[in-house]
Design a protein around this nucleic acid. Structure first.
Length: 456
RNA sequence: GGCGCUGUGGCCGAGGAGUUAGGCAAAGGUCUGCAAAACCUUGUACACGAGUGCGAAUCUCGUCGGCGCCUCCA
């Protein structure tokens, strides 16, 4: 398995810390609004990564955090005049429903920040004890200059004097302009947790290292997120954890996904121009079509979303659906032209995915197979091989091809009736039945082996 | 300004020193009652300039675009 590693800036062969096992952590959402398509793309990428690792015989624990306390949440709850816990509970439920709908089902454990306050407090205290953190009026901060390796992930080593706009966690008392907040003391009325260094709430970066240390210890294999998190978020995580544990590297492989744009512009929650996963669902699109759209681009490339591009993906999905429908209409062995490439196709799909998650090539392999199968049909003998392949594709991509049910007996009878009408050269009857089936979402292809149906 | 990504045929998009990526769209053909599907054929692309190579879209340098991050953001 090869993956591009942001830390080394090259494609590295993956070497698990513990043989046969992968500890994967991905930054989850801040639950203060509905998940948008950018979230959908990122989480689909890592869902497919986890699936690939597992199909590569790597025992993968996929951990994702849920940020359920931060400034945006407090602000949004005030705006809506509801309790922040009520807000996060609702959006967490919505997020889970959206992920379920999209087929992002490979997460082993979701960890809510507020369930790990003890771990967070322990880390902050540890950083204070070791002299990396200091306390000022509004919170506890990490002192960047104490960690010489700061910048090794993002490549930002020097503080730019003319970088006047940059003010991370602004405060006059900070020792360094880019020192980041570990713990923020609460103002009256704000959510608060007790801590030896002062009552307050976690800063942005500390929840992730606290959660990963809780589950994985101070070092683990893989950390994912979208590219916008490289700086400052992931740089800060690395800084915290390596300072605290003294163990290097904190994470072996850093994986970052490219951005999704809408009409070539960044979609952001704060820009008010975002398309949510729910918008796509409500327009009646198949979740698999959206997944396919995400997978058609390489995960590190930018992907531009338009409704037209989603239509094109839906069209491509229907091609795979036709392949899936063949399992219900295999032909007698002597009729089929024979397909012996099931195992080879599976191997090729996995090989593409193990090459830095090359989903475009993998889909090309699947399309080529699908075209061949639709041309030659599948023999009764090969039915189990086809089902096996469909299930493999589902395991890999989550497209739910193998779950498509058979058509009804009545519909099958109509197809038989039409075949008889065609034999009798009753073209009017034949075409009427074809139109009738079309209204039921069933298309027909007349082949040398008889009519083959597919659902569109 | 700093850090990083990127520029591919009508469109979308991988790849990455010599050998067809793929998809969509288009034209012609085979098959067919019609349709659909599938298949065959056709298009010879890599921003620009210079350099290093026997050879560069692929490496180097430069130029010009586009984008992201540097500020909450997947």
């Amino acid at each position: 398995m090869k993956l591009y590693n942001t830390l080394t800036k090259q494609v590295d062969e993956l070497t698990p810390l513990e043989q046969g096992k992968i500890k994967l952590f991905v930054c989850g959402p801040t639950v203060y609004d509905l998940a948008q398509l950018g979230n959908g793309r990122t989480y689909t990428t890592f869902d497919v990564l986890a699936r690939t690792l597992r199909l590569s015989q790597l025992d993968t624990f996929y951990l994702q955090n849920i940020t359920d306390i931060d400034d945006k949440i407090i602000k949004r709850a005030e705006e809506k005049n509801i309790d922040w816990k009520e807000l996060t509970a609702q959006y967490l439920e919505d997020y889970m429903a959206d992920m379920q709908w999209l087929g992002n089902t490979s997460v082993s454990e979701y960890a809510r920040a507020t369930d790990y306050i003890d771990d967070i407090v322990k880390q902050v205290q540890g950083l204070i004890d070791k002299g990396y953190a200091y306390t000022i009026d509004d919170g506890v901060y990490f002192e960047i200059t104490k960690f010489p390796d700061y910048g090794k992930l993002s490549g930002r080593h020097d503080v730019q004097e003319d970088d006047a706009q940059s003010r991370i966690d602004q405060s006059d008392q900070k020792r360094g302009w880019n020192d980041f907040c570990l713990w923020k003391f609460s103002k009256p009325g704000e959510p608060v947790w007790q801590a030896p260094f002062g009552a307050g709430r976690p800063g942005w970066h500390i929840e992730d290292t606290a959660i990963t240390e809780h589950f994985f210890g101070p070092q683990y294999d893989m950390h994912g997120g979208a590219i916008d998190l490289i700086f400052p978020h992931h740089e800060a995580e690395l800084t915290q954890m390596e300072s605290l544990s003294g163990k290097v590297p904190f994470v072996t492989t850093w994986v970052h996904g490219g951005f999704l744009t809408v009409n070539n512009k960044r979609m952001g929650k704060s820009m008010g121009n975002f398309v949510t996963i729910r918008d796509v669902k409500n327009r009646g699109y198949d979740a698999a079509a959206l997944r396919l759209l995400f997978l058609q681009a390489h995960y590190r490339s930018p992907l531009d979303f338009t409704w037209e591009s989603l239509d094109a993906a839906a069209n491509r999905l229907s091609g795979y659906n036709e392949l899936a429908d063949l399992r219900w209409q295999t032909v007698a062995d002597e009729q089929a032209q024979g397909m012996d490439s099931f195992r080879q196709t599976k191997a090729e799909l996995l090989r593409c995915m193990q090459d830095d998650l090359d989903t475009p090539s993998a889909l090309a392999v699947l399309s080529a197979f699908s075209d061949q199968a639709k041309d030659s049909l599948v023999s009764q003998e090969d039915e189990s091989s086809l089902v096996d392949l469909l299930e493999f594709v589902d395991d890999l991509f989550g497209l739910q091809l193998a779950k498509r049910p058979d058509i009804s007996n009545h519909q099958k009878q109509l197809i038989t009736d039409r075949e008889q009408a065609r034999e009798a050269k009753d073209w009017q009857m034949s075409d009427e039945i074809r139109d009738q089936l079309k209204k039921q979402g069933i298309g027909l292809n007349d082949t040398g082996h008889g009519a083959i149906w597919f659902r569109f």
